[in-house]
């Protein structure tokens, strides 16, 4: 099978300090991969390579090859806007725009030139259904997104990402700011979305990684310590550091 994302010997520097060291991981389509590791291990930085969100930080230097759908995304003429349409992202803290629920989901379409109202309506409904939020908000689409609960806001952000038909969804600790019930809903959602999207998720919650992911990669101090099928990695870690981390001895 062909990989949808590949990274080959990726190094990343913030000024002088090196945040990622020689990371090589490839991702299969329609899988969920969890990136785990203690705070500051580089897993979020690694995730942000795929939609080039690291570009927003001053003084970042990246070496190595990163491809998405077969294309090197760090070329001079890479269309970053188009890349970000293909590679959606859900952030740690729900960040809906101060607009109505409808306009939040429609935003990604509007900025990409879709303004036809019937298309927008159709797409907004479809995305909200996919994000398992439609039944809760269908009667108040014109209300401000800020009136939703934290968990609903996060699912709105997922719907917003789905609306522009990405093939990959990056999730940066999407449930860390949510209560257990909302977390469970998000996890269910991830499981369902897998059939259509490739998902890469950063999480601090090992149980969550165990529940939602097919593959897991363990990062420590900017290095990739171990990667593999989630079950195997959790039951039978090959590296002592991985073992120590997943048994709670550090991190």
């Amino acid at each position: 099978m062909e990989y949808i994302i590949t990274t080959d010997k990726v190094n990343l520097f913030y000024g002088e300090s090196q945040a990622l060291k020689d990371i090589s991981i490839d991702f299969l389509p329609n899988t969920v991969t969890a990136l785990i590791g203690p705070s500051g291990c580089g897993k979020s930085t690694y995730l942000r390579l795929f939609n080039r969100m690291n570009d927003l930080i001053d003084n970042v230097k990246i070496t190595g090859d990163i491809t998405v759908e077969g294309e090197n995304i760090y070329q001079k003429d890479t269309n970053i806007v188009e890349l970000r349409r293909k590679v959606g992202m859900v952030f740690q803290k729900p960040n809906p725009f101060p607009k109505s629920i409808f306009e939040n989901v429609a935003y990604g379409l509007r900025v990409n030139g879709v303004n036809d109202m019937s298309t927008l309506k159709e797409k907004v409904e479809f995305s909200l259904k996919q994000a398992a939020l439609w039944d809760e908000v269908k009667d108040k689409l014109k209300k401000s997104a800020f009136e939703l609960s934290g968990g609903q806001q996060q699912r709105l952000c997922i719907a917003r990402a789905l609306a522009i038909e990405p093939s990959i969804i990056l999730m940066d600790e999407p449930a860390s700011a949510l209560d257990p019930i909302s977390t469970a809903k998000i996890e269910e959602l991830i499981y369902e979305l897998k059939s259509k999207y490739t998902i890469v998720i950063v999480t601090h919650n090992l149980q969550q990684a165990g529940r939602v992911s097919d593959y897991t990669a363990f990062f420590y101090l900017g290095e990739l310590i171990e990667k593999g099928v989630t079950k195997e990695l959790f039951i039978n870690p090959k590296n002592i550091k991985t073992q120590n981390y997943i048994t709670g001895r550090f991190g």
């Binding site: 969100m53 927003l56 952030f91 960040n95 101060p98 900025v111 990409n112 952000c157 522009i164």
Partner: peptide, 17 residues
């Protein structure tokens, strides 16, 4: 807050948008 900018950029919006 920067999270709003990031949210928008991550949806394929340009800086101007």
């Amino acid at each position: 807050d920067n999270s709003f900018r990031h949210g928008s950029l991550a949806l394929g919006a340009t800086k101007l948008q």
